[in-house]
Computed example of a mutant assay.
Amino acid sequence: MMGILLQVVADSTAATVANATSAVSEKLSLWSLMSKGGILMYPLYILLIITLFVFFERWQVIRKAGKLDPNFMRMVQDNIVNGNLSAAQSLARNNGSPVSRVIAKGIQRLGKPIDVIEKSMESIAEIELFNLEKHLNILSLIAGIAPMFGFLGTIAGMIQLFYDINTTGNFELSVIAGGIYVKMITSGTGLVIGLLAFILHNYLSTQVDKTANDIEIASADFMDILQAPTK
């Protein structure tokens, strides 16, 4: 009799473990988890879409701005030294990069004092960098608020969970554990989106810094060109 009872218990335990394993496998499906995150998952989806849109839009603009003919400054120098200012101006205007637009402003101010030329170029450089950095603050904002949205979703879910437990009086561990892990989905999603936005923001900022460095180098070379004929 005892042997039969033990066999029944063992079979029941095995079936329970198998069912639990199957349930866990099903619950750990990515799309299944995402669908259980609750209503606050939708703002997180929107933040993710905005993050990707802003990144690819800015990435294309910044990548285009970083393209410059390696011989650009040499050609500008040759034209200025030869007195062909119109050709130098045309070359700078037609290049279409922030560096060339800064140099074009410097060529346009030729004949004025050096400090006036330099200030004009600095003003254009600031405008160009501002245009490149446009919308990057959105990524910075998302990096900060996405985890907060996720945490808010978890807190709201936990409040609802404990309210249901208090109302129904169901204190089974499986119910509590299942409810908790589902409510943590929003926190995990928010952290992932926030981390992604932070990484993309820093990547784009680095590319803008490279363009700023190119502008500074080109501006210094241009000022040297202006000083060369007077030597």
Rank of each mutant, 00 (worst) to 15 (best):
P98E: 13
P98S: 13
P98I: 08
R101Q: 15
R101H: 15
R101G: 12
I103M: 07
A104K: 09
K105R: 15
I107H: 00
L110E: 03
I114Q: 14
V116Y: 10
V116A: 10
E118N: 14
E118K: 12
E118S: 12
M121V: 02
E122K: 14
E122S: 14
S123I: 12
S123E: 15
A125G: 12
L129E: 13
F130D: 11
L132P: 04
L132H: 05
H135M: 11
N137Q: 06
I138E: 02
L139P: 02
L139C: 04
S140G: 14
L141D: 07
I142D: 02
I145G: 01
I145N: 00
P147I: 06
F149R: 05
G150I: 03
G150Y: 00
F151K: 02
F151W: 03
L152M: 15
G153I: 05
I155T: 06
I159H: 03
I159A: 03
Q160N: 11
Q160T: 11
Y163H: 11
D164P: 00
N166G: 12
T167Q: 14
T168G: 06
N170C: 02
N170V: 05
F171E: 05
E172M: 12
L173Q: 12
S174H: 10
V175W: 01
I176P: 05
A177Y: 07
A177L: 03
G178L: 01
I180W: 11
V182P: 03
K183C: 06
K183T: 01
K183G: 00
K183I: 00
